[in-house]
Design a protein around this nucleic acid. Structure first.
Lengths: 105, 105
DNA sequence: CGCCTGTGCAACTCAATAGTTGCACTGCGG
DNA sequence: CCGCAGTGCAACTATTGAGTTGCACAGGCG
């Protein structure tokens, strides 16, 4: 189970810059320095974001020689989506019941 | 289309207190004052959180007499989940292709 | 071996936000 | 009609987090 607790994952996904990083990583694995060349922030800022993303399991480091490249863990995104969907479905169900009661059905 | 842009929704969901509010609203619609009785924060703090949740469409206000009760919009949770799942699936697909290439298949 | 690239750690600034207190307004109920 | 419960607005504090600069360290490569 790679799944981190739900809330921190959402917190991690609640930042535009981190989505930029994820998008850039979608073009292929890259190191913090490489990403710094493509994004309008410093390498250190990216390193911090990568640390956050790694902590919630959205990204994982891969040592390549003396570099540290990062890869997106798509499964974690899917897992988070499923859990969120389950919650949403639960609420829909409850609202449906309330509606039925209200309509006297 | 009630869907707000994706990132702010995640930012809204990246806070424990807001999940507490959503959970409390899951027991039935409630006003800010009513929620303040159940949660360890002041009514004003809750009002701010409700404003945030409303802005991203996760919650909607319902005037009941002179009160303003709030209801969870489960559909927005589901919609967010679907969009996130689509992104996750896309990443899985890409990683699959990369893996195939790497394995010389 | 010596350099240059990439990484890691630390201190600092600045903006955003969670939370508070305080006050003013409104509208239903006795 | 008066009071009280509920709401809204505003100012303030404090903490978190994004971003920066600066420096120290490590490991390939010429």
């Amino acid at each position: 189970m790679t799944s981190a607790t739900l809330v921190p994952v959402f917190a991690a996904l609640g930042d535009e810059t981190r989505w930029s990083i994820l998008a850039a990583l979608g073009e292929g694995d890259a190191s913090a320095s490489a990403l710094a060349g493509r994004l309008p922030v410093t390498r250190q800022a990216i390193a911090k974001h990568l640390a956050v993303l790694q902590q919630v399991g959205l990204v994982e480091p891969v040592r390549v020689g003396r570099e540290v490249q990062y890869r997106v863990v798509g499964a974690e995104l899917s897992a988070t989506a499923r859990r969120l969907d389950a919650i949403g479905a639960e609420w829909d169900r409850r609202l449906g019941i309330i509606k039925e009661i209200a309509e006297g059905l």
